[in-house]
Simulated scan of single mutants.
Amino acid sequence: MLLDWVTVILLITIGLVLIIVELVFIPGTTLIGILGFVLAGIGIWIGYAALGTTIGHIILGSTVLIAGVAFFYSFRTDAWSRFALNDQMKNRVNDEHPHTLQIGETGVTVSALRPQGTGLFNDQQHEVQTKGEFLAPNTQIRIISLNHNKITVEEVS
């Protein structure tokens, strides 16, 4: 009888922990969440089979109540926020070194532009793009538009 209680409590506890892990750490429905539901269900089923219908109802109700309270308080008290990724990337291309380029300046491609790549202007490399053309490395290019840090170029004919 004691072994039945230990088995039921362990299965339900492990199942609930796996479900919480699924909700917090692993997004989507994966094997961990399904395994958690299966283990909790087996624990409840063993409770009904080995301990009787009345005890099975108590185990089922307790499991649902404990799971609901645990989910409610764990998300309400923000207990999981220390595990969340809070860092944000705020840098953008060419933000570190603002350019002093002008429309009409000429340079050379360092990498192939397909249609984006690297161009060399005034001994400084910049991320540039074409209007869809593909340019090989070491091709002479000219700036045709500047929009914030977006540099659009074309091949010098």
Rank of each mutant, 00 (worst) to 15 (best):
Q140C: 05
F121E: 00
N149S: 12
E155H: 08
T139W: 01
V128S: 03
S145T: 13
Q125W: 03
I141Q: 00
L146H: 06
G119V: 02
A136Y: 07
Q140Y: 05
N149Q: 09
A136G: 02
N149F: 06
H126R: 14
Q124C: 04
N122A: 14
A136K: 15
T152V: 12
G119C: 10
I144C: 05
A136M: 15
Q125Y: 05
V156K: 10
N122F: 09
E133K: 13
K150E: 12
E154H: 06
E133W: 00
R142I: 12
P137C: 08
T152E: 04
A136R: 15
L146P: 03
T139L: 06
H148L: 11
E133S: 13
H126A: 02
K150N: 13
T139H: 02
L120T: 06
N149Y: 07
D123F: 08
G132M: 09
Q140S: 15
G119A: 11
F134L: 13
N147K: 15
V128T: 05
E127W: 06
I151V: 09
Q140V: 08
I141N: 01
F134P: 00
F134K: 09
I151P: 03
Q125P: 01
L135M: 04
T118C: 03
V128N: 01
T139D: 02
Q124D: 11
R142G: 04
E154N: 07
T130C: 02
E155Y: 06
G132K: 11
T130A: 01
V156G: 03
R142V: 12
V128D: 02
L120S: 07
S145G: 04
I151K: 03
P137K: 10
H148A: 13
T139R: 02
H148G: 13
E155M: 12
L135T: 03
I144E: 03
A136V: 12
T139E: 05
S145I: 07
L120Y: 06
E127G: 09
N147H: 11
L135I: 02
Q125V: 07
T118S: 10
V156I: 10
D123G: 08
Q124A: 11
L146I: 14
F134Q: 10
P137H: 09
Q129P: 02
H148D: 15
Q124G: 02
H126D: 00
N122S: 14
L146K: 04
N138E: 12
N122T: 11
T130V: 08
H148S: 15
Q124L: 15
E155S: 13
L135G: 05
L146E: 06
E133H: 09
T139A: 07
T130K: 00
T152L: 09
E154I: 06
V153A: 02
N138W: 03
P137A: 11
L146S: 07
E133Y: 09
E155A: 15
K131N: 15
V153I: 15
N122Y: 07
F121L: 05
T118R: 12
H148I: 08
I143S: 03
Q124H: 15
F134N: 12
